[in-house]
Simulated scan of single mutants.
Amino acid sequence: MPGASVWEKKSPKTATATDLDGVFTLPTKGRKSVTLEISYIGMKRAEVTWHGSDLTVVLEDDTNMLEDVVVTGYQVIDKRASTSA
């Protein structure tokens, strides 16, 4: 998934986003394992532990998250430009 957020659980400042192929890199500072959190809109957040090798993460749909969408807007129109009655 492109654009998924990935961050280290103990250090939220260490974060990145996945590229078009879902690939990401994070600095591990020499540690042999790191707990990561991955999130994406409309998907359940996943927590995985990296142990030094490639890992594949599969996110589950979160159907409750996208039940309602509310769009609001506001526009100011000059009276001279308005043609309404």
Rank of each mutant, 00 (worst) to 15 (best):
V34K: 09
P2T: 13
T63P: 02
T28E: 04
G52F: 09
V6K: 06
D54C: 02
G22S: 09
T28S: 14
V58I: 04
E67S: 05
I41P: 06
S5D: 11
L55G: 05
W7M: 12
K13Y: 12
D61R: 12
V48A: 10
P12V: 12
S5T: 14
A46Y: 05
T16L: 05
P12T: 10
V6R: 07
V57E: 01
I77K: 02
S84P: 00
R31Q: 15
D78N: 02
V69A: 01
T25D: 09
W7S: 12
S39H: 05
V69F: 04
V57N: 04
W50T: 04
K13M: 13
Q75L: 08
T63A: 08
T35Q: 15
V69T: 01
M65H: 05
E8D: 10
S33R: 15
L59R: 02
A81E: 03
S53T: 07
I38C: 08
K29Q: 12
L59K: 09
H51S: 11
K29A: 15
V70I: 03
I77D: 00
E67D: 08
K13H: 13
G30A: 11
K32Y: 11
A46R: 13
L55C: 01
N64K: 04
P12Y: 08
E60Y: 00
T28L: 10
M65C: 00
G3P: 01
V23S: 10
V58Y: 03
V57I: 15
V23G: 08
L59A: 06
P12L: 13
M65G: 01
S82N: 01
D19V: 10
V58D: 06
G52V: 06
I41R: 05
P27T: 13
S5C: 04
T18Q: 02
F24W: 13
A17I: 11
R31A: 15
A81S: 02
M1Y: 08
F24N: 09
V70W: 00
T14L: 14
V70F: 05
M1P: 06
A4S: 15
M43F: 14
V58H: 05
S5Y: 12
M1W: 11
G30E: 08
V34E: 11
M43C: 11
V70K: 05
A46L: 06
P27H: 11
V57C: 08
T35S: 07
G52E: 07
A4W: 04
S82A: 04
D54N: 09
E37M: 15
A81R: 00
L26C: 14
D62P: 01
R80S: 04
E60D: 14
P2N: 15
T49S: 10
N64H: 02
A4K: 09
T14Q: 10
N64Q: 03
A17F: 12
P27A: 14
H51K: 15
R31L: 13
G30V: 09
A4P: 04
Y40W: 08
A46C: 10
H51M: 08
Y40D: 12
A15Y: 14
D54P: 05
T72D: 05
L66S: 03
G52N: 06
W50V: 09
E67P: 00
